[in-house]
Amino acid sequence: MLGFISRRLTFSIITLLVVVFAVYAIFSLLPFDPAALTCGQHCNPQIIHSNRIRLGYDKSLLAQFWLFIKGIFLGRTYGFGASAFTCPAPSFGFSFNQNECVSTLLAQAFPITINLAIGSLIIWLIMGVGLGILAARYKGKFLDTASSIFVLLGISLPIFVTGLFMLIWVSLKWKIIPIQLQGYVSIFSNPIGYAKYFVLPWITLAFAFAALYTRFTRASILETLGEDYIRTARAKGLSEKIVLRKHTFRAALAPIVTMASLDFAGLIGGAILTESIFNLPGLGRLTLQSIYEFDLNVVVATTIIAAAVVIVMNLIVDLLYAVLDPRVRI
């Protein structure tokens, strides 16, 4: 078990290094000069040159890469003498466009994204799995048909349609769900403001996922009900309730744990569409903006976070699956 985890962690670190290096390499291939982008309106070759040295862009790709990795653990100081400034560890470099250390930008964006992801995960699991169970239980009946309409809508309507619909009609025109545009507040300081801030994006994001989960849950339960061990359970004289609850659900829902963990990991990387529509300053929007502005350090940092979350979630899924399914032992 411990061996498994340490092995996985070693591989994870190697994977992360490769990811970071790949992003670095791709950016170095782009036909623009990062130093030139840092100097604004009153630009001249001297400023560009001094900025290049100050930010380390004069060094080789490998050397820059090394400085970046070192910065994560030790912090990084740019420039010399009086004009020097430091981004403390963990430093992901400095964003010239925003004139901030990248770690500060991340610290602002991360809570938004994580709150968005957790909230919608809870909603879509309850809705998707619940509806899937009902659809399987009443297969071919009205509830099943109704849920398949829901699934069809959820899968075929893109976020930018449902999101705008929620925003314009549900919230602004019909005023069914209130919206708070003042900005993010913590759940601990102002729970109502927090809920108002997130409820629309939560529902929008959850809707798309819930549809997939409904379909998946329904299929998984129906498949499990056809298993030989379910017939054995019935042959014992167990009631249909116990056959469903004890014997079917556990086997049918185990793959959903995997699916949910990976989808969740994907969302931490940033729900770009949802964040853009609802004007949430989360990781997704930060990434998008930085790509437009060729802000290398920010893009690298968000990529690392996205990759790290996927890697960690994969590890958690493997451990969790071993708990759920005794055939998997690590």
Binding site: D228, Y229, T232, A235, A251, L324, D325, P326
Partner: peptide, 12 residues
């Protein structure tokens, strides 16, 4: 009792 003892017992 059933044909396939491999799949007739609940794996979990």
């Amino acid at each position: 009792i059933f044909q396939d003892p491999m799949s007739s017992l609940h794996p979990y």
